[in-house]
Design a binder for these strands. Structure first.
Lengths: 150, 150
DNA sequence: CACGTTCGTTAGCTTAACTAATGAGCATGG
DNA sequence: CCATGCTCATTAGTTAAGCTAACGAACGTG
């Protein structure tokens, strides 16, 4: 089940490692994500709010690309977030077609709350590990973030 | 951005690590999962088929618990998988209320195909890393799997 | 054997996702 | 300088996924 020879062979090693990592990621994500609405926000809404908060300001198109959904889908999600007062639409300064989306102050507060609660389960689990295990995960986290963004 | 002192303080360290890991996991999962239907199967269907294939045989209730959805939701998903000929329902040998779900031969073939294609993107990314980086991820993968199952 | 519990399903609703089509605004070429 | 074409966001319409509530069948126990 574990990786026996991670250093030898970047071909098969990578395939085997990819399988293990994806399995772990899939399972962890199921634990962390909460498929159903969390509080008043759904996953898609929270995810969009997160991307928006991290980026600062985006057009609907950019946000849709980030979330890997089609523009009409993002229109709906943003519409609900706007109704909830968490996101605001502003006209683009020079291009009349485009719209600038940003989180409202309330949106930022709500985002921070969910961010914390989302980390709680995992933080609890991690605190049960040994120091070396946490160190191993910390080293991996940096690499994973790089892979995820690449 | 990286974890500076993973060994000191299991409290704050775990919180910070949890945040970084969750971020990486969320992003990786978005890359890997493809939110929209893959081929003819949706994510929920593929996920249920995966759980069923891994477990061998399950009742709808057990499968719903594994997938962290409510029983009625699983009824629908299994219904579609059954229509597609990937999953079969069988009566429980002793309990007339219960149903035994299992993947059909075709379901197993389809599962294996998706499993491979799902790993491809990640395997490609991993092959671009250095040997030590892959070794670090391999060590982390084992720990992550343990955390995810715990 | 009657009563409560568990199991799976059905019914009805909301959200999320897609494609196709629409309308507004930009930009460019004659 | 304006007509044509393109991009942006949205609307319309469909399918899937998720929920709760309610139901009928089967089990088990007092």
């Amino acid at each position: 089940m574990t990786a026996h020879h991670p250093e030898q062979g970047s071909g098969d090693g990578a395939a085997q490692l990819a399988h293990e990592l994806r399995d772990a990621i899939t399972r962890l994500n199921r634990r962390v994500r909460q498929a159903r609405p969390v509080g008043d926000l759904t996953i898609a809404q929270l995810s969009a709010l997160t991307s928006l908060e991290l980026a600062g300001a985006l057009t609907p198109r950019e946000l849709a690309d980030l979330e890997r959904v089609q523009p009409p889908t993002m229109t709906k999600i943003v519409g609900r977030l706007e109704e909830a007062g968490l996101v605001q639409r502003a006209p683009h300064p020079t291009d009349g077609r485009q719209v600038i989306l940003s989180a409202t102050e309330r949106g930022r507060v709500v985002y921070a709350q969910f961010e914390r609660s989302r980390d709680q389960w995992l933080a609890q689990r991690l605190s049960e590990l040994t120091g070396p295990e946490r160190a191993a995960l910390a080293a991996a986290a940096e690499i994973l973030q790089r892979v995820a963004r690449g």
